[in-house]
């Protein structure tokens, strides 16, 4: 299970590849859905990073004259009950979603990788103990686990990230552990050991890079679920508190009250969540096809 020689793959597929640009075009042609996903994800990241340049209004500033304003030339996506510009709030909301999504995925990934590596590498009592602990954590659905965690930590941006990251750990740890177990017996690892390389170094230099492909695939999938879980938590009032414009929160209280008079309050934040998660899913599928040939469809 070595890392995929992408170039060879492309050549085999009959592509005449010169330079990264045509390579990109080729990949995009080969995986049109993935390309669309990548565009969506890039737009999302771009929006989040440059929110302060994109948003025409301060997302927290209220205006009594604009309460529940319809979408139009001033408020492109309308305004909420407090007269806050929906477009600006959705743009800033991308920041929250990105921060929570990325934060939780990275944190969960980092913890999962360390636990998985140590577990697979050290084996023995440590492995046994962590496996049982992961069993426990996996005996609750992601949202239920995150819900209890979020309640225990209290609502804040940082706590929400932690609450979502922890339930993501077991899957990552399991994936890393199982590839570590099989890699440990591979000839190149034994060779490294034979030349006197330290175990930690072997783990980091040789074993870890070879688990990257499934990790990236997994990470993309987890990014999507992290964003969804954050939205659900905030919708239930246990996630990101005001004044942060979280998409899930925007759908919860005030928005739902104006389903009839101001449907834009319900439609647009939902579209934002769905599009973003949809993009990460498309991208994740394509990455899996590219990086993990066994599962290729």
């Amino acid at each position: 299970m070595a890392i995929i020689d992408h170039e060879a793959e492309l050549h085999r597929a009959g592509a005449n590849i010169t330079g990264w640009r045509s390579q990109l075009v080729f990949t995009a042609r080969r995986y049109p859905l993935g390309a669309i996903g990548a565009v969506i994800v890039l737009t999302f990241v771009f929006t989040a990073v440059f929110a302060n340049f994109i948003a025409p209004f301060d997302p927290t500033s209220t205006d009594s004259k604009a309460s529940l304003a319809r979408p139009g030339s001033v408020f492109w996506l309308g305004a909420d009950f407090m007269g806050r510009d929906m477009f600006s709030r959705i743009v800033y909301g991308a920041r929250i979603s990105l921060a929570v999504g990325m934060g939780a995925t990275l944190m969960g990934g980092l913890l999962g990788v360390s636990i998985g590596l140590m577990s697979g590498y050290l084996g023995g009592a440590f492995d046994l103990l962590t496996q049982r602990l992961l069993d426990v954590m996996q005996s609750l659905p992601l949202l239920v686990m995150a819900l209890v965690m979020a309640a225990a930590l209290g609502p804040s941006l940082e706590n929400t990230i932690v609450a979502i990251a922890i339930p993501l750990v077991p899957t990552v740890a399991r994936v890393v552990r199982s590839s570590t177990l099989s890699l440990r017996e591979q000839p190149f690892v034994e060779a490294a050991r034979a030349v006197g390389m330290g175990e930690v170094r072997i783990a980091v230099r040789h074993v870890l890079p070879n688990t990257l492909a499934p990790l990236i695939v997994l990470g993309t999938a987890q990014l999507g679920s992290a964003i969804l879980v954050e939205a659900s938590l905030s919708f239930l009032g246990l996630g990101i508190p005001e004044p942060y414009p979280s998409w899930g929160r925007m759908l919860s209280e005030s928005a739902a009250e104006y389903v009839r008079t101001a449907p834009w309050l319900v439609i647009f934040p939902g579209v934002a969540i769905s599009m973003t998660v949809f993009g990460t899913n498309l991208l994740g599928d394509a990455l899996r096809d590219i990086l993990d040939p066994r599962q290729r469809s």
Partner: peptide, 25 residues
Amino acid sequence: LRVLSLSGLSLPSFWLGLLVLMASV
């Protein structure tokens, strides 16, 4: 069909629920 199924994985179910309620009303 694949796009449809992916959208199923992407729509938050509370939003879908709200949309259904909206449509129903």
